[in-house]
Design a protein around this nucleic acid. Structure first.
Length: 511
RNA sequence: GUCCCCAUCGUCUAGUCCGGCCCAGGACAUCGGCCUUUCACGUCGGUAACACGGGUUCGAAUCCCGUUGGGGACGCCA
């Protein structure tokens, strides 16, 4: 039974792939992989006016970036109207559906009337048994819902839900322009594609009984349903743009790693006792619908940031360098000449954008954007050297953007010295240390962190001071700030020439 | 308005199905200590929750009913 599982992710291309959609896709993906089934991508583009190719592209790109590979698809609905038409005709012939000639205006006023009377706004069935149609009006097709009894949805997550059939009306399955509507199309497509489990957001819960009756009209047992709780913003309202970034693309641009995003998302609603970090293989092995909670979850960017940091530490420098390429091409990073190939990514975001969307990124301990727009010589980055540099930075960077940001003092010819840091550490008191340091480093043949450390040790003994006394001024002079990886390694990576140049410049600023 | 769903620390959650091991565990955030030859990292610890009211039971976070609160759906959108 397990290899029969077929699930699908069916986004409508009316926007970018967003966080909620990504989680739905992920749960479907994990369910399929866990059961050795098939995962299908289907684009719900029946709404011709709001669907755009750009969004379809973006959704596919997002899936690719997240590494949610599908076995079939992407399928689209445009061009399949003939198929839907056939299904509608069958219903019509069997008397399970009928033409309705009511105008949109009439319906609207009926809805208003019902609402005013405190009744659910439903279609009153005027045309249900109509004998003499008003031919001059192009009709819609409505599906005959049962008028008495009840319908039970046995949801894998929510449990048994009972609906009184009296709350339903005969809903439209085909518009007057001959295009089918969503509630009908999903059923036909899911049926055609042999979908066994429908895993989707619980905003679709109330559509389920309607769809179940369509399955029945086609003599089909409905698939199993699993309705995922929603993801909310910090104010517990449905997650939207005003809560900040909501598209997967935006998180990519802010320097998040796909695995980290996925790992964070899976914990919104699903759990495996106390475990927080899961490899993909673990997720596939452990995922089960039984452990999906039933209440909505608030999206918490801080925890995502933490989790991304964990993944930053775990990645190899080589992998991280790959990710960095994306930002070199798409961001105007100080120190990177932006000659990278242009990706098909919307407008490159700037650091101030990042700052605006992620307020916590400017919190203490996080290096803010470098404002200078200094035009420097393009530096040819040696891979080995670059990976070495990344290695020193990765454990203290929570995002790729932070990492890229910190790279500037390795790459640029010169650094701008933070005013506060300079004032505190580049003083007449520290001047002798710097002077001596320049002297020793200049004389140093073997410019390695080990030898550099020895230099500092010697100076400590000579001046009889703690390492901090010498290291901090040096750090400020060389990196421009008080926070950086171990100073010996930094000096080695910056190299002899630039190190000495920066130290000398700092020295001059003291005068 | 009508229908549906939901309800454990600020947030994500474990525990709820099969009541006792829970005066409620973990994680993020936050606060404090420790470590340290540099910045960081790290590490140890603290604050903090079963929405409320009724039942059922020897015993309820766990079962039942109600209240309140939140969310969703009610379209010739998906």
């Amino acid at each position: 039974m397990s290899d029969d599982v077929r699930v699908r992710f069916a986004p409508s291309p009316t926007g970018y792939l967003h966080i909620g959609g990504a989680r739905t896709a992920l749960f479907n993906y994990l369910f399929a992989r866990h059961h050795n089934g098939k995962f299908i991508l289907r684009i719900e583009d029946t709404d011709r006016s709001r669907s755009t190719d750009e969004y379809i592209e973006a959704i596919i790109d997002g899936m690719k970036w997240l590494n949610l590979d599908y076995d079939e698809g992407p399928f689209r609905q445009t061009g399949r109207t003939e198929l839907y038409r056939q299904y509608v005709n069958r219903l019509l012939e069997e008397g399970r559906a009928y033409y309705c000639y009511c105008s949109a205006e009439e319906l609207e006023s009926k809805r208003k009337l019902a609402a005013a009377a405190g009744k659910p706004p439903r279609y009153d069935g005027t045309c249900r048994d109509l004998k003499n149609p008003a031919v001059e009006i192009k009709p819609v097709v409505r599906f005959k819902m049962p008028q008495s009894g009840s319908t039970v949805v046995d949801d894998l997550i929510k449990g048994k839900i009972v609906y009184e059939n009296s709350v339903f009306d005969d809903f439209i399955i085909m518009r007057s322009d001959d295009t089918p509507t969503y509630n009908f199309v999903v059923v036909v497509d899911d049926l055609e594609m042999g979908i066994t489990h429908i895993i989707r957001g619980d905003d679709h819960l109330n559509n389920t009984p309607k769809q179940m009756h369509i399955y029945e009209a086609f003599d089909h047992t409905p698939p199993k349903f699993a309705h995922l709780p929603m993801i909310l913003g910090s104010d517990k309202a449905r997650l939207s743009k005003r809560h900040g970034a909501t598209s997967v693309q935006a998180y990519r641009e802010m320097g998040y790693l796909p695995e980290a995003l996925l790992n964070y998302l899976v914990r919104l609603g699903w759990s495996h006792s106390d475990q927080e970090i899961f490899s993909k293989a673990e997720l596939i092995e452990k995922f089960s619908l039984e452990h999906v909670g039933s209440s909505a979850a608030v999206f918490n960017p801080e925890k995502l940031l933490w989790m991304n940091g964990e993944y930053m530490k775990a990645k190899s420098p080589a992998e991280l360098r790959q990710f960095l390429e994306f930002y070199k091409a798409n961001l105007k990073l100080p120190g990177f000449n932006s000659s990278g190939t242009a990706h098909n990514i919307p407008p490159a975001i700037t650091f101030s954008d990042v700052k605006a969307t992620m307020p916590h990124m400017t919190a203490s301990g996080t290096r803010g954007p470098v404002e200078s727009n200094t035009q420097m010589e393009p530096i040819n980055l040696d891979k080995t050297w670059e990976e070495k540099a990344i290695k020193t930075l990765q454990e203290r960077s929570r995002t790729i953007v932070e990492l890229a940001n910190s790279m500037h003092y390795y790459i640029e010819e010169d650094v701008a010295i933070d005013e506060k840091a300079g004032k505190k550490f580049l003083t007449s008191e520290t001047k002798p240390y710097l002077t001596a340091l320049i002297e020793r480093l200049t004389a140093l043949e073997d410019f390695t962190s080990k030898e550099i450390e020895a230099v500092f040790m010697g100076l400590m003994a000579e001046f009889n001071v703690q390492l901090g006394k010498i290291a901090q001024p040096a750090r400020v002079a060389i990196t421009g700030n008080t926070v950086s990886p171990g100073i010996f390694e930094v000096i080695e990576l910056v190299g002899k020439e630039r190190t000495i140049k920066r130290l000398q410049k700092a020295l001059r600023s003291i005068l």
